[in-house]
Design a protein around this nucleic acid. Structure first.
Lengths: 223, 223
DNA sequence: CAGGAAGATTCCTCAGACAAGTAGAGGTGT
DNA sequence: ACACCTCTACTTGTCTGAGGAATCTTCCTG
């Protein structure tokens, strides 16, 4: 309990120390690290331990070791996980970014949706109906409908972006609905029907507008 | 060449094999793997090799080993790197996603820009002037200007998104400008000046429109 | 039944040895 | 002077054995 934070294995500590030195610029990008034997001796650890630390950083894409040549720096820092970035970010900022991609996706969907997309949209809309279900189920059905809009836009990057947003937005919405339920679930559902029908009749400006008004209201509610 | 495929070190091969088994569901999420000695013997490799493979997967967040307890599955797959997602995606899809976030950012910037932001924008615009420089330098100056727009929008998520887009867009633009330079660099630069001035005078619709027309033209050129 | 002690199991670290691969020095021939 | 080859030194890759440290399980005791 006391040593909960200091309980890292030696190899992990060495990996952290190496990463810190790389960040500090001790070994530039593409440069070669000292040999394992010399580096292990300098750090005061066994060669196996140093090798495990190198492997850990190699798994994170920072180092790359080639037999006979040496260990080379392939990145100056670990790529931060998108999920952690969003988790750390302000909810308002996340929703604003979602407004950006979803209004565009709604407009694109209006121009590109296939008959199959329309069927899927209407089915997802029906599944979102405010029956007497749990908050999680309702939010999941809502996210599923919004995702179909992105799929109908036929842009893989936008879909991936939305998927990255889902976890963060989901928890925020669940929390909000627990504390303060919607004033009118019927009005909320009607707004979604408006969006779906705009896409169905290929009305891009209306789809984008419907998306924007709905999400802006959500942003206000979450703030 | 048989060795071409087995060029990876044994530890990396073991890591890949373990990941494949985890993906296949041999060890569920949170479950414990067999002991090092047992697993190493079963795979026909030394303990240190297996340990390095485990370390590599631990670096990727798939495994977590606790002394005295065992090695546990913490994720069923590696989180795909955003950069690799974009590199694999179609250029048109990437630009479309960029249009989504940048038009919104331009509109937000018009409403939130500080006097300091305006100064930075004008400085970046001047630095982007089509002097007789290399293609890379020109593209970098262009990306730097566009980034300032996101900074002026004061939304951390949008800035992070743009930064994620930069590598992919940069290479595509460099490639395009090498093959087919712009018809009129003056007109291109004038379009950027229009965007900057719209943000300076707090004209959100004009800023968004300027951003959209410019990026749509870029999308056409890259397609 | 609660609590603690002992044992078994597991990962962690180190050391040494040899194999496999790479890069550079140096010689050789043209 | 240049290109090519060989050999050597160095580097990472792999295995084995040993002991230490942390954790979990079992069983004993009150």
């Amino acid at each position: 309990m006391v040593a909960q934070l200091q309980r890292h294995p030696l190899a992990a500590q060495v990996a952290e120390a190496l990463l810190q030195r790389i960040r500090a610029g001790e070994w530039p990008l593409g440069h070669r690290l000292p040999g394992e034997t010399t580096l292990a001796a300098r750090l005061g650890v066994g060669r196996s331990t140093l090798r495990e630390a190198i492997r850990e950083l190699a798994g994170k894409g920072v180092l790359d070791s080639r037999q006979g040549a040496g260990v080379f720096v392939t990145a100056l820092d670990v790529v931060e996980d998108w999920d952690s970035v969003l988790r750390r970010a302000d909810v308002a900022a996340v929703i604003e970014a979602r407004i950006a991609i979803e209004t565009e996706a709604a407009g694109l969907a209006a121009g590109r949706r296939t008959p199959s997309d329309v069927r899927t949209l209407r089915r997802a809309l029906a599944a979102r109906a405010p029956e007497g279900r749990s908050v999680e189920e309702h939010v999941d059905a809502d996210m599923a409908l919004h995702r179909v809009v992105f799929v109908a836009a036929h842009n893989e990057v936008l879909v991936e972006l939305f998927d990255a947003f889902v976890p963060r937005v989901r928890t925020a919405m669940v929390h909000m609905l627990r504390v303060r339920p919607l004033a009118s679930e019927e009005a909320d559902h009607e707004a979604h029907a408006l969006l779906v029908e705009a896409i169905a009749r290929r009305d891009a400006p209306a789809a984008a507008a419907a998306s924007r008004t709905h999400l802006t209201a959500l942003k206000e509610a979450l703030a």
